[in-house]
Write a protein that binds this DNA or RNA. Sequence first.
DNA 1: CTGAAAGCGCTAACAA
DNA 2: TTGTTAGCGCTTTCAG
Lengths: 359, 359
Amino acid sequence: MADIRDVAQRAGCSIATVSRALNSPQLVRPETLARVQAAAAELKFRPNALGRQLRGERTGLIGVMLPTLGNPVFADCLEGIEAAIDGTGHRLLLVTTQYDPERERNAIETLLQQRVDGLLLTLADAEHSALVDDLSAEGVACQLVYNDAPLRPCVSVDNRAAAAQGVAMLIEAGHRDIVMVTGALHASDRAKRRYLGYGDAMRAAGLTPLPAFEIDFNSGARGERVREWLAQRERDGARPTALFCSNDLLALGVMRALREAGLRVPDDISVLGFDGLAVGELLSPTLATVVQPSVDIGRHAAQRLLAQIDGRAGAVGAVGAASAAGMRDAALGQALILPHEIRRGGTVAAPPRRAAVRG
Amino acid sequence: MADIRDVAQRAGCSIATVSRALNSPQLVRPETLARVQAAAAELKFRPNALGRQLRGERTGLIGVMLPTLGNPVFADCLEGIEAAIDGTGHRLLLVTTQYDPERERNAIETLLQQRVDGLLLTLADAEHSALVDDLSAEGVACQLVYNDAPLRPCVSVDNRAAAAQGVAMLIEAGHRDIVMVTGALHASDRAKRRYLGYGDAMRAAGLTPLPAFEIDFNSGARGERVREWLAQRERDGARPTALFCSNDLLALGVMRALREAGLRVPDDISVLGFDGLAVGELLSPTLATVVQPSVDIGRHAAQRLLAQIDGRAGAVGAVGAASAAGMRDAALGQALILPHEIRRGGTVAAPPRRAAVRG
DNA sequence: CTGAAAGCGCTAACAA
DNA sequence: TTGTTAGCGCTTTCAG
C-alpha cells in the first residue's frame, strides 16, 4: 500500500507538500497540486486515517453505545444519529450492551481507547451510574440518549409526565384497575420513571397505584408468565381492565400472550404501550401508545454532541470570558426534553362491564 | 492524558516494559508487573489504540455497511454480527447508505482509510458492482451480506428459490392472478432475484408471469399509489387475488393501503411477504412470509470474515503448499447459502369467488 | 510556495 | 527479564 512518501517521490516533492495538497489545496501551487493528485491516483494512494488521528487533535470518531438493536426504538435512534453526522466527516463506532452494566463499562473504555471525539450513550441506569460523572470529570464530550436525568447532558422525553398522560387517558376511558407491566424494573431508569408517572396519574384520579408486574425480558417463557399471572388475578377476582406496558415491544408480547389466553384486546382488556414504534400503527387493532420521537432524539443528541465537540475546540484559550461558546456549553450540559405525544389506538377501549364478576 | 512514558517513569522502568506488562504479562517479573499496574492505575493510564494500530498489523476494526437500520431485517443482521464478534476484541465501524451507490463507494473508501481489518457489506447490486472485484483485487477481506452472488464471498438465502417456493404456496392455495410488488427493482439485486423466482413458480404452474408493480420506497404517497393501481386493475377486470411483496416492510405498507382502500386481507386479497420479520407474527392476521434467518446471516458473515482475516495472517509465508488455511479460504470466497423457510400466515387464504365479475 | 524535521503513542526487534 | 531504538503514516511548525 502506497504511503505519503511514495506519493511525494513520484510527484517530485516533499511529503509536507503532499499533505498540504491533500488537506489544504489552496496552499499549493496549482501545478504542484496537479502533480500530487496524479501521483496519488496512479499509486492508488489511500491516506491512512490512523496516522492523521494519532498526530492530530481529533479522530472524527463518535462512540455510540446502545442496549440492543433488536428493539426498533434504538435502531430508529441510530438512524437519527446517522442523519445528523452525515456530511460532517464523522464516523460511528457502535457497541451494544444488552442492558448489562459490566458491558457498559467495558464498552465505554474501549471507545475511549480508540480516542473517539465524543460519546452517545444509553445507559441502563443513568442516575445511579458513576460512569457519567467520571466522564464529565475527565472532560469527555458526552450526551445521554433516552435516559432522562435532569442534571445531566441528555436528550429524552419526560418519561414520567408522558407515562402519566398515557395512564390518564386510560382512566378517562373508564379504567380503574390498571396495572403497569415492565421488564426488570431495576434494569432501566426509564421504566422506573414511567412507573412513577403511572403512580402520579392513578393518585391524581383518586386511585391506588398497584405494584408493577415485572416480566424478565430475556426469558423465553414470557407468554407463559403472563398467562399464569392473569389466571392468578382472575382467581382473586381482580383482573385488571387495562395494562400499561413500559414499552411497545413488551406490549406486543403481552398482547400475543393475551390472545393465546383467549382474551380479546380491547374488548376484554385494554393495552397501552410506550415508544411509538411504527409497526404499532400497522397492527389491527392499532397499538395505543405514548410516542417518543426516537429519530429526533438521536438526531438532537448527535447535534448537541457535535456542538459540544466544536465548542471544546473553540474554547481553547478563551478562558477569560463567558463566551457564546461557553453559554452554549452550559445548555449542552443539561437535559433536552423533547415533546411526546399520545397516540390513540384500537387497543384501548372502555372497560368491559363485569357487574356479575364483581357482585 | 497520561501516556506510556509517564507510566514507565512512575513505575521506574522503560516504556518497553510497560508495553510488555500490558500485553504479555507473563514476560515480566511479577514484581515489575505489579509496579507497572499500580502506576498505570494511579495515572489512570488509558492505552491509545491509535498508536498500537498504526504500529501493528491489524486494527481490530470491522467495517459494516448496510442500506438502512429502518428495516429490522438489517438491524437483526447487525445483532448477529455483534454476537459473532463479541469477545473477539473486534469493534464495529458502522455506515448506512440508504441504497445509494455513491454513498456505497464513499463509505467503503472511508472504512478502508480507517484501516479496518475487513468489510461486511450489503450492496444495492452486488452483481454489477465493480467494487467487490476491486476489493478482492486489493486483497481486502470482505463478505457480502444478503446479496446472493453465486461467485462472490457472501452469506444469504437463495432468493430465487425461496421466492419461487413462496409463490408456489400461493398457487397451491388456488391463486392464479398473482402480482409481485417491489421497491425500485433496479436498486436491489435481491428484489430482482425474487422476481425471477416468482416467474419460475408461475411458469412451473403453467401461468404467465405478470410485470412487477414497482413502488418507490422513498415516496411518502405509497398508499395512494397502491390504491390508484388497484382501481386501474379493477377497471380492467384484472384485479389480482394475491400480492407477493418483495419484503415484509413493503407488505406491511401495502396491507395498510389495502385496508384503507376497503379491501380485506385475506378475504378479498392475499398477501405474502419476504424476510420473516418478527413483527409479522404479532399482526393479526399474521403475515405469511418467506423467512430468511437474518441474525444467522449476520452471525455467519461475521464468522467467515474473522476466519478470513485470521487465515490471511496465518497464510503469510505459507506460499508453497495448499495449506488447510488455503482450503478454508477457498470456501470463504464462495457463497454460503443459508436455508430459508416458508411461514404460513393468516394473510394468505384461498382466492375469493368472483364468477360474477369474470362472467 | 515548499522542505526539513520533530514528533503523536505504541510495538518489536535486538542487545544486554 | 529489561532497555534501547527504530519506526508505523501523518501533520505541522519553522525556515527558506
